[in-house]
C-alpha cells in the first residue's frame, strides 16, 4: 500500500515536560488508524504534529514524502491536503454554514464561488444538514456543528483527515450522528487518523489501533489484537478501565 504519512523518532517537549518521547509509525493510503490512550498520553499532540500545528522538538514527519516541520516546506499547501476536525468544532461564528465551507476552497484553491457552493451543497447533503446551509454556527447543536466542521474540512478534498477527539465535547445523544458520518467516510476509502475515546468506533471502523501512554507508542495492531489480546500490561490496565 502507498505510504501517506511517515513519522520517525518524533519528540515534543513543552519546557521540561516530555510529551512525545520518540514516536515511529506509518499510515498507508485509505487506512483508518485510531489512536487511543489515557488523557495526557500525548495523543492530541501527536496528531497536531502531523499537520504542523505543533512544532516538533526532534525527529520528523513526512506527508507524501514532504517534511512537515522543514522551514522550506510550503506549510499552507501541505495543510490544504490534510483536513482536520477538532474537539471543539472551531467553526467560524461570524460566517454562515455555507461561508464556513466555501472560505478555504475559494481563497486557497481558487475554486469559483459557484463551484464551491455546489461542493458545499453536496457535502451538506452527505452530512445531512442541507437545511442548515444559511444558519450560523450558534444556531446549531454540537453534533450538527461537528458535522459541518467535517464538511468544511472535506471541501478542500484532502488526501488525509485528522480527527482530534471529535465526539468528546458532544452530548451523548449526538455522538452517533458524527460517528456515522466518519464511518461513511472511512468506507469510501479516506485515509484517517482518529484520536478517540470511542472504543466501539475504533473496534468497528479502524484498520489499526495505536495505544499511546506517557508519550510513547506502547502497542499497535489490528483492533482485535489490541482490544482482545493486548500484549502489554499498560494496555490491559487502560482497557480494563474504559471498557
Amino acid at each position: 500500500m502507498d505510504e501517506v504519512i511517515r513519522v520517525e523518532g518524533l519528540t515534543k517537549n513543552f519546557g521540561d515536560l516530555r510529551v512525545l518521547r520518540g514516536i515511529d509509525c506509518t499510515v498507508s493510503a485509505s487506512e483508518v488508524v485510531c489512536v487511543i490512550g489515557p488523557s495526557g498520553s500525548g495523543k492530541s499532540t501527536f496528531l497536531r504534529c502531523l499537520n504542523g500545528l505543533e512544532e516538533a522538538s526532534g525527529g520528523r514527519v513526512l506527508v507524501h514524502g514532504t517534511s512537515v516541520h522543514d522551514n522550506h516546506t510550503d506549510i499552507d499547501t501541505l495543510r490544504s491536503e490534510i483536513g482536520m476536525v477538532f474537539q471543539r468544532f472551531n467553526l467560524f461564528p461570524h460566517k454562515t454554514v455555507l461561508e464556513n465551507i466555501t472560505l478555504a476552497p475559494t481563497k486557497v484553491r481558487g475554486v469559483s464561488p459557484a463551484e464551491a457552493k455546489q461542493r458545499a451543497h453536496d457535502l451538506l447533503v452527505k452530512v445531512g444538514l442541507l437545511d442548515k446551509i444559511d444558519a450560523y454556527p450558534n444556531q446549531l447543536s454540537g453534533g450538527q456543528q461537528q458535522r459541518v466542521a467535517i464538511a468544511r474540512a472535506l471541501a478542500m478534498q484532502p488526501a488525509i483527515m485528522l480527527f482530534d477527539e471529535p465526539t468528546s465535547a458532544l452530548d451523548p445523544e449526538m455522538v452517533g450522528e458524527v460517528l456515522n458520518v466518519m464511518q461513511t467516510l472511512a468506507e469510501e476509502g479516506m485515509t484517517m487518523v482518529v484520536v478517540t475515546h470511542e472504543m466501539g468506533f475504533a473496534r468497528r471502523v479502524a484498520h489499526r489501533v495505536l495505544f499511546m501512554d506517557e508519550g510513547m507508542l506502547v502497542e499497535e495492531g489490528s483492533p482485535e489484537a489490541v482490544f482482545d489480546t493486548p500484549r502489554e500490561e499498560r494496555t490491559r490496565r487502560f482497557l480494563a478501565n474504559v471498557l
Partner: peptide, 11 residues
Amino acid sequence: GQIEASRSLGL
C-alpha cells in the same frame, strides 16, 4: 482554536 482551524484549512 479559530486560528488553528483556519490554518489547518491551508489559509
